[in-house]
Computed example of a mutant assay.
Amino acid sequence: MTGEPLRLMAVHAHPDDESSKGAATTARYAAEGVEVLVVTCTGGERGDVLNPSFEVPTGHEFESVEGKRAVRRLEMAAAADALGVRQTWLGFVDSGLPEGDPLPPLPEGCFALLPLEEASAPLVELVREFRPHVMTTYDPSGGYPHPDHIRCHEVAFEAYHAAGDAGRYVVDGGAEPWAPLKLYYNHGFSMARLRAAHEAMEGAGLESPFGDWIESRAAREIPERTATTSVDVAAYFPQRDAALTAHASQIDPEGFFFAVPRDLEADVWPTEEFELADARVPTTTPEDDLFAGIRKES
């Protein structure tokens, strides 16, 4: 794209998702001069504390929806800084993860209960303003069945397809239509990746935390989606890890995300994977670059 910087938009449901799904990829592209914008659909207001060592920052509280929102905004700013990316909020309210049988109703006014066009409109306008060449988000399952992850997929899919249509989402004084060129789904925790890490840890004489998870997923026969694109990001694991630990209320620095020694991880799985969902430019899979077919060779 001669004379114009490449632009990548990563659409996520909650603060911390951008650090656990494709984070090293966004860090790599940002370091290479790509304009990267992380879009966070909700404020993560209903997320539980998942880090036993978490301490509420001085001057804040974490009991109310408003208090959680404020703390998670602080965490998100630190994570974006670690990755070297821009970040913005769509401003919707976390739906929470319902538990029980039967499942309780979702909270009134939450992200997952909004009509699709109402939830998509601000992202459509943001796509038109930022003009990304590539968008990333979750597959139709949401990656796991959190209602906000499923709605995040729906909203990002809608925005990708609608933002270039001048007859849709018409706003007085709004930005001109813009059609992104490629849409990808994140592939963060594939069975192939888990097995590779599990076998490498056992081979190194280390205790692997992944055995039960692999057996559970296999028993439930969870279908594996096909990754089309692998981006080499081992050099950016430190930025990813810094972003993860920035989300102190959610990420345990002694937990799952840090179970694999980083030198071992770089040896057996130095990439992050994506699934090409749609392309408006010619490209051939497998790819090693989200901008394959978009970059102009010099």
Rank of each mutant, 00 (worst) to 15 (best):
A30F: 02
T25G: 03
C41S: 15
E18Q: 13
A30C: 11
G33S: 07
D17N: 10
P15W: 09
V34I: 12
T42F: 07
A23C: 08
E32P: 05
A31E: 01
D17M: 14
T26A: 06
L37F: 07
R46F: 06
L37N: 08
T42I: 11
T25Q: 02
V38F: 00
E35W: 07
T25Y: 00
V36I: 07
K21M: 08
K21E: 10
H14R: 10
V38Q: 14
P15F: 10
E45Q: 15
S19W: 03
H14T: 05
G22Y: 01
V34W: 05
E32G: 08
R46N: 06
K21Y: 07
E32Q: 15
P15A: 14
E18D: 15
A23T: 04
A24M: 05
K21R: 14
S20V: 15
V39C: 05
V39Y: 09
H14Y: 11
R28Y: 04
V38H: 14
A31I: 01
T26Q: 12
V38L: 07
D16P: 06
A30S: 13
G43S: 11
T25F: 01
T25S: 10
G43Q: 08
G33P: 06
E45L: 11
S20I: 14
R46Q: 14
A24D: 11
K21D: 04
L37K: 09
E32L: 11
A24P: 10
G22H: 02
T40L: 12
T40P: 01
P15R: 07
G33Y: 01
S20E: 08
D16N: 13
T26P: 00
R28V: 10
T40M: 10
S20M: 15
D16I: 14
E35M: 00
H14C: 13
V34Y: 03
S20P: 00
T42K: 06
V36W: 02
D16Y: 14
H14S: 13
R28H: 04
G22M: 03
E18P: 11
E45D: 14
E35F: 04
A30L: 08
T25K: 01
T26Y: 00
P15E: 13
E45G: 13
T40G: 02
S20A: 14
H14L: 12
T42Y: 09
A23W: 04
H14Q: 13
V38C: 12
H14I: 10
V34P: 02
E35K: 12
D16W: 12
T42P: 08
E45T: 11
A31H: 02
A27L: 07
Y29I: 05
D16T: 14
K21C: 10
S20G: 15
Y29E: 02
R28P: 02
H14F: 14
C41L: 07
A31N: 02
T26R: 07
G44Q: 02
E32N: 03
A27K: 00
V36S: 03
G22E: 02
V38N: 13
V39P: 12
R46V: 04
D16V: 15
D17S: 08
V34R: 03
L37S: 05
E45H: 13
D17G: 09
R46H: 03
R46M: 08
L37V: 10
T25L: 04
A31S: 15
